[in-house]
Design a binder for these strands. Structure first.
Lengths: 334, 334
DNA sequence: TTGTAGGCGTTATCAG
DNA sequence: CTGATAACGCCTACAA
């Protein structure tokens, strides 16, 4: 059995209180006893039970994380890696709150409370999912990834989606394109809406007209890329380039072009969004907007700790910059 | 503030013990009081503090997970999805033990104890990393993924690596190949060794000779695929097919062949291992051995719960079957 | 059927 | 500087 603080006290010949003080680096304690207690602790491999500690201190040193059920997001590993990076020196561990069940009785807030988590990161949900709202209104520090939720203690971090797509449009214009189509992501999602916004702004920036037949409402999927392409190819005045809201969509576009016997980038320039692993391996490799997923993870935890540590800091928000990665799927217009 | 059991007791006009009994579904309690207490609980949105509960019961209803620092494994999302599936109805949440630091003082066991986790899943480590051994010897239930660690309370789950590679070899033989080369993964890793073993057995099964010049010692990376290809192409008696220990290695092979002006599968058949997302999108798309990553995650938790619930079940082990996925990177030998 | 009281491992408050 | 002792929120004999 693991020794507890009483065992240590007995072995060191001091009181429980003294051991506690040594553990927590209290002042007013003689070097001699400190020394003695420390040795006993080392020898006995003692480590204070953080659960009991949490009970009395009202702190648990654990952060929570809500993921939407069955989310299989290729990015997630990188986000987690970023989170770990921020977690490392903080003393916090991360609890994956896995029992989100989609019946109306379920409460994010109660789940958090019952687990004594000091704050949560939320990823993959939509604004009106379940009673997410209750969480936002609550006193529980929360950081949302890719969802602009703001509350007393709730903020968010997301990529600069608007600017990312604007960069795409600008780049295509720079290499001569003016008939630039757009494949949206799911418009029910926050990032989907923003990327669409980015497209409109991008056109406006450059004085290009917005044409509704150059827009296909998709859902981030490869399939929607295929469908979009078929639609665009059927147009009298075909676009010469397609900006996509996701790499998977762009993959679909490339496939559909090949299927139609046309060439990318010869007959159509294509640009993605995300920079997932696949982007390097498509033929042609994909020019895309890279999201700093590691940075998103890193900052989600960093901001969360900020809320927790500064009693009344305003709910923090962070827009993480994106980067244009030029590969082979775009060509200057002849 | 969240109500506690005392608040509920007061509001319901009963004792704390009674409330506790209601919560825990004790027998001998009158329907009337039960009813009353239940209503109060609903109204007050009360949820017992699982931390305090854990302290007294000696159970925490949390499982732990150790990941190697900075692990960015494309599979991990799928494994996590599988874990979640098993976790869902269990009442357990999953604690990501993030503070693994690689100095000799760090102890997996103490980290577990201090967090009161009832068991852990370990992924991405090698046999002699840190003091993993202490964990295996301990009383803490543990399931290792892709590492054959066995202890009183420790078991593992992994793909059928040997059989997977044997399937590759057999498939190539069936379509006419006999000069079959092999790209190993990192041989310091458990799965790397097993896959190598699978290659040897595969040849033996079919009465094919083992030639050391047909083996390249790699490390699962794309780069090692490139290097292996260069070596194999320089041979007098070139192989006609390459079995790879990873999809990334196979991707490297395809690249190097293209670079050399040769064709896959025309001049060389290539077969991967893993079935990562990229496999579908290479040109040609990759014939490969699919790992059931969801199943691995699912079973890791399932087995762990088994150890926890059955006091003295033997340390469980699970070899998850693989599946040959035929795509376009292999061709019959003319 | 219900309530009382002791304890889980730790920290915090006061005396000494 | 050190040591009793009462919390923290909950569960569980045992008593009533």
């Amino acid at each position: 059995m693991a020794p507890n603080i009483r065992d240590i006290a007995r072995m060191a010949g001091v009181s429980v209180a003294t051991v506690s003080k040594v553990i927590n680096n209290y002042p007013h304690i003689s070097p001699k006893t400190k020394e003695k207690v420390m040795t006993v602790i080392k020898d006995a491999q003692f480590m204070p039970n953080s659960v009991a500690r949490g009970l009395v201190k009202g702190r648990s040193m654990t952060l929570g994380m809500f993921l939407t059920t069955g989310l299989v997001h290729p990015f997630f590993v990188h986000i987690l890696a970023g989170m770990e990076d921020s977690l490392k020196e903080s003393g916090f561990d991360l609890l994956y709150l896995s029992q989100v069940n989609w019946n109306p009785d379920y409460s994010f807030v109660r789940h958090c409370m019952s687990r004594n988590v000091e704050g949560v990161v939320v990823f993959g949900f939509q604004r009106f999912d379940l009673n997410l709202d209750e969480l936002v209104q609550s006193e529980i520090p929360a950081i949302f990834i890719d969802l602009d939720m703001l509350g007393k203690k709730a903020g968010y971090v997301t990529s600069d989606n608007v600017d990312g797509i604007r960069k795409s449009v600008r780049y295509l214009k720079e290499i001569g394109h003016t008939r630039i189509a757009f494949l949206t992501g799911g418009l029910e999602s926050y990032v989907g809406k923003l990327r669409f916004e980015g497209y409109k702004q991008g056109l406006a920036d450059l004085g290009l007209p917005y044409l509704s037949e150059y827009v296909y409402i998709g859902d981030f999927s490869r399939e929607s890329g295929i469908e979009a392409t078929q639609k665009f190819l059927s147009l009298d005045n075909r676009p010469t380039a397609i900006v996509c809201s996701s790499d998977m969509g762009a993959v679909g576009v490339i496939e559909a072009m090949k299927e139609a016997g046309l060439s990318v980038p010869g007959d159509m320039s294509v640009i993605g969004f995300d920079d997932i692993d696949i982007a390097t391996h498509t033929v042609p490799s994909l020019t895309t907007i890279r999201q700093d997923t590691f940075g998103i993870g890193q900052n989600s935890i960093r901001l969360l700790l900020e809320i927790i540590n500064n009693a009344n800091c305003p709910p923090p928000t962070m827009i993480v910059p994106t980067e244009l990665v030029v590969r082979d799927s775009c060509a200057p217009l002849a």
